[in-house]
Write a protein that binds this DNA or RNA. Structure first.
Lengths: 135, 135
DNA sequence: CCTTGACCCTCCAGTGACTGGAGGCCCTAT
DNA sequence: ATAGGGCCTCCAGTCACTGGAGGGTCAAGG
C-alpha cells in the first residue's frame, strides 16, 4: 500500500502519517522507487493511533500504549494508569471550560448587544486591577 | 514601574508581558537605562488582557476587545458578538471533551487493572480497522 | 573601589501536533 | 511527448508562550 491508500483506510492525512514516521511511531518499508510501502500491520498501528488520538491521548501516551499493546507481558494496570491519568486531565479541562463558560455566559446575558457603547463585558474585563481610589 | 512590579500587580509573568509588547498589545515607555517603564494605564491594559485570556479569548480576540474598549463609538453588539462566538467555541470543546470522557470512563471501568495482560482499553483501541476475517 | 545579588535587557530555540507550500521525481494513459 | 495525479524531502508557520544563554544596571555592604 502507498501512503494514499493507508490515508484513506485509516482516515489520517498523509502528512500526519509521514509525521508519525518521523517521530518513530511507525516504520513503513520502502519501495525501490522511494515510496513508503505499508503493510497491514502498519495500517493497524495507524488505526490504533487514530483512535487513541481521537480520545485525546498525547503522542507520548500513544507511544506508551502502543508499546504495551505489543508487549505480551504487560499488566493491564499499566494501561489503566495511563487512561486514568488522561481521564483526570480531561476532567480538569472540562471543569476549567465550564467555569469559563459560566462567567462568559453570564456576561453575555448582561450585555444589551445594541448600538450603544455601554457593555458589561468590557466593564468586567477592565475591572481587574484596583484603580487607586483616594487613600 | 518596572516589569517586575507590573508582573506582580497583574499576575502575568514578565516573559508574557515582554511578549505582549512584541506583538503590539502594549507599548510601554522606556527609561534612559533601557528598562521598560510602565504607567498605570499599561498595568490596566495588562490586567484586562489577563482577565480576557483567563476567559479563554485568543490573543486576536483580546486585541479586538482592547480596541473596542478604547473606542468610545463602539456598539456593544460588536463586543457581544465576539463573546458569543467564543462561547460557542467553548461549548464545542466541552461537548468534545465530554464525549471523550464518556468513552474513556467506560473503558477504564471495564479494565481490571491488575497484573494480567488482558485489557479492554487496548482491545478497543486496536479494533479500529477491520482485520481481514475469512472471506 | 569592589563585590554581591536582584533586577533588567535581547536574542534564540523549543513546546505539541501537526499543516501548508515549494520544488521536484515517478507512473500511467493518451 | 505530455498531462495528471501521486509521491518525495525540506522548510516554515501555527498558538501563546517558556526557558535559557549571555550580558548590562543598580543599590547595599565591606
Amino acid at each position: 500500500m502507498n501512503i494514499g491508500d493507508v490515508s484513506r483506510r485509516s482516515g489520517l492525512p498523509a502528512k500526519t502519517i509521514r509525521y508519525y514516521e518521523e517521530i518513530g511511531l511507525i516504520r513503513p518499508a520502502r519501495s525501490p522507487n522511494g515510496y513508503r510501502s505499508f503493510r497491514e500491520s502498519d495500517l493497524h498501528r495507524l488505526a490504533f493511533l487514530g483512535r487513541a488520538r481521537a480520545l485525546g491521548f498525547t503522542i507520548e501516551e500513544c507511544r506508551a500504549l502502543l508499546a504495551l499493546y505489543q508487549d505480551d507481558g504487560r499488566e493491564s494496570a499499566q494501561v489503566k494508569q495511563i487512561a486514568e491519568d488522561h481521564l483526570a486531565r480531561i476532567d480538569d479541562k472540562i471543569a476549567q471550560l465550564q467555569s469559563m463558560r459560566a462567567t462568559l455566559a453570564h456576561l453575555v446575558s448582561c450585555c444589551a448587544g445594541d448600538d450603544r457603547p455601554d457593555c458589561p463585558i468590557l466593564d468586567d474585563l477592565s475591572a481587574g486591577v484596583g484603580a487607586p481610589h483616594d487613600g
